[in-house]
Write a protein that binds this DNA or RNA. Structure first.
Lengths: 215, 215
DNA sequence: GTCTATATTAGGATAGAC
DNA sequence: GTCTATCCTAATATAGAC
């Protein structure tokens, strides 16, 4: 594997584990058993390295969020979709850990990051629209807007929130819990079908999470 | 005013404005027209300064969150209560901006911060319990738990989320929007009264926010 | 491409005079 | 209590040999 790629991979791992601010270029070089000089040969500076990782994330998440949302409405399908979104975020979670500082230090990224939030917003809106069209739910414009905002906020900060409360937990557990929380937001709108929906959501959550939580 | 207090006040202002990581002890001294040496006479280090500010916040928010929640159920009253909670957070918003780094750097604070989240959880739970007792709503244990989690997450990250999307906005606008989003979470559980509730929430939001947003 | 050695800051912190 | 001057350290970054 090319050194350049190894640097990217190791940086990402360290950033996610220790936080970007707490990871120095020397740390990265040490972990790779290369010299700091070598690292700087491949990346002119830490900012370039971060920008590159951000671009990777940006491409991955954009592709996922732009996927067509006209898929069937089964609870399982929606669950899976949201899981994939969270998973991609989890792989680059260092970006979310200290967002404000990061975006303040690299203003270029702020614009691009905001675009990703907008994409999330669009994806969730489309998701809700699909439910509305299928007449599963009916909400006023304002209700829908508030709900979508709340879902996007959760989608953006769930990993931080979980980390704040539990420090380290198995990724699958964290992510499934996040999907569960998202699903719980739409449940009360389902009226008659609310109980059924909850049963399904709970059973998915428990079946998948029980083994993961045990280990 | 004593120098010690002026230091605290100015530090808080700069931290909130520029971020704690981007504010040096020299910045603070300059802003106050005192020497860095003088600052270090009053506070042994930046960490002591931050710890002191945190203690201030901790006391303020604890008092608010521990206030009895058996008050009447009028939408206005609840609105006011949540506003006060957000306001106190806003005054010390630098703590929330880069939570992970801050808590990683000052592990002592992590424990105390988590306690505050627990208090929020208890306050929101009690709030919901009051509604249940008044038979305004009825939810399963699980639904209630998920809802409360979602509300606490919003209460914790709303200021960050708004800042991410809008950079700088008038505080009253930010906070009222936050309360509105919180209220929108409980609305769908109100069934029959949902429309009424929404009307009230919307009118409060608009009446208060319209002038603030205009300026 | 990779290394060793070193330069450059910036920021936190202290000593000692007043 | 306050100032000036200075130290120390950690982190980014570069020069030049191999």
């Amino acid at each position: 594997m090319k050194t350049r790629d190894r640097i990217l991979q190791t940086s990402l791992a360290l950033f996610n584990l220790e936080g970007e601010a707490n990871t120095t270029t020397v740390d990265i070089a040490n972990e790779l058993d290369i010299s700091p000089g070598n690292l700087y040969y491949h990346f002119k500076g830490k900012d370039v390295l971060i920008a590159e990782l951000f671009t990777q994330y940006e491409q991955g998440i954009t592709e996922i969020l732009n996927a067509p949302i006209d898929r069937p409405l089964s609870v399982e399908d929606n669950w899976f979709y949201l899981y994939v979104v969270f998973e991609e975020m989890y792989n680059y979670r260092f970006l979310y850990r200290n967002l404000s500082d990061l975006l303040a230090r690299y203003p270029e990224l702020a614009r691009r990051f905001r675009r990703i939030v907008d994409l999330k917003h669009a994806a969730i809106t489309a998701f809700w629209q699909t439910l509305s069209d299928a007449a599963v739910v009916s909400t006023s414009e304002e209700e829908a807007e508030a709900l979508v905002d709340n879902m996007v906020l959760l989608l953006t900060y769930w990993l931080n929130y979980d980390h704040l409360l539990h420090e380290e937990r198995p990724p699958a557990l964290i992510i499934h819990k996040g999907v569960y929380q998202l699903m719980s937001m739409i449940a009360p709108y389902l009226g008659e079908q609310q109980r059924d929906f909850y049963e399904q959501v709970r059973s998915i959550y428990r079946n998948i999470i029980a083994p993961a939580a045990a280990k």
